[in-house]
Design a protein around this nucleic acid. Structure first.
Lengths: 212, 212
DNA sequence: GTCTATATCACGATAGAC
DNA sequence: GTCTATCGTGATATAGAC
């Protein structure tokens, strides 16, 4: 088994090599995201995903060993990118503008990747069986660090007094709502993009909340 | 078929008569709420619900004609009580206090009936297949009426200028978050009741947002 | 009214032809 | 690599004994 002659075993050992393999893998993950984000892991079926991807059901299982593996692949890439904006908070920056920028980035994520947001929501609603350890370790630690930054800003009088953890929860809730409850938002507002008005609204609200 | 001799046909035609029937119906709905709110309609199974209720699977289907019927019964009672707090907004009252009272009631609902909140969230995430007409008619109308009240308060200078629809969305998002994302909230905060701190936080935040 | 037993079907996953 | 055919399981719902 040399490096040069080794081909992917079932396309799952190692990264896919050929263009077609990469393309089909992406097709499957795209279809899986569509279905998992709507129905959750248990409510989703391979038939749906196969139809959505335009591939046969056994072909799906050639690229991924199981339904569970598809779901895990999606969750992993999600978690890698999900909290980056929070990490980008700069303690040296202007407090209010830093937080407003974070709100804007989160709202852009909700607008541009609503299915990823709903995938996460489904996972949490079902009790986070697959990512609870991550929530209790990495996420918790990241939130704790961010709280230190926020408390520092408040102590310096550059930010209105606020419960830092619940401020973070508030930002998550307000931005993800537009992705997770998109159907309800649209039903109430009628047609048209709600994100522009939402952005303006959140900008004003957080300014009032946090201006010292 | 007289009134006096008519007994429930399959216990589904008309309201249940005996104490046992009422109790079993409640047992089933309680168990169904537990399971549907976690896994959504498609992810839930009758086996789970039966086990949760301590009844046999066929016995479930004696009280309800189908899985769908259980789900519909839950959604119906949910919708009847879900928006009552919004209806309680009094145009004659003190604007800020009226809105803060609504926030508090919604947060109490999230604390006392988190499964109902998650049942609703699941339904919306799946595209609201069963309640979309309701959202587009009753809910939309109720929101429109509430917006008139809020705009009136703002015009009188008794409330800071605000986008009324997105203010309502914000209230929903911030309060339901503590029920729908309870697992995440607990994972980040550690043990202990998050609702007390959440209530204080939201009270302060909305005061700053809405004080003229 | 409640159970055991079962009909019927859809699901995830596998076998094997090509 | 991709397909058709199929296995075994678990799903909803029904039949019929008690």
């Amino acid at each position: 088994m040399t490096e040069t002659s080794a081909t992917a075993q079932g396309a799952t050992a190692g990264k896919p090599r050929t263009r077609i393999q990469r393309r089909n893998r992406e097709l499957i993950l795209e279809a899986a995201l569509q279905v998992f984000s709507q129905y959750g892991f248990r409510g989703a079926t391979l038939d749906q995903i196969a139809a959505e991807a335009g591939l046969s059901k056994p072909n799906l299982l050639y690229y991924f060993p199981s339904k569970e593996a598809m779901h895990e692949a999606l969750l992993q890439t999600l978690l890698e990118t999900w909290l980056d904006p929070l990490r980008a908070l700069d303690p040296q920056g202007a407090p209010l503008e830093e937080i407003l920028a974070y709100v804007r980035r989160k709202l852009e994520l909700a607008r541009d990747y609503p299915r990823e947001s709903r995938l996460f929501a489904n996972e949490i609603l079902q009790g986070a069986p697959r990512i609870l350890p991550y929530l209790e370790s990495d996420l918790r630690e990241l939130v704790a660090q961010t709280c230190v930054i926020i408390r520092g800003w408040t102590a310096e009088g550059r930010l209105a007094p606020v419960d830092p953890v619940h401020l973070i929860f508030s930002i998550w809730a307000l931005t993800q709502h537009y992705a997770d409850f998109e159907v309800q938002v649209t039903a109430v507002l009628g047609e048209g993009d709600p994100f522009e008005a939402a952005g303006a609204h959140l900008d004003v609200m957080f300014r009032r909340m946090l201006t010292p």
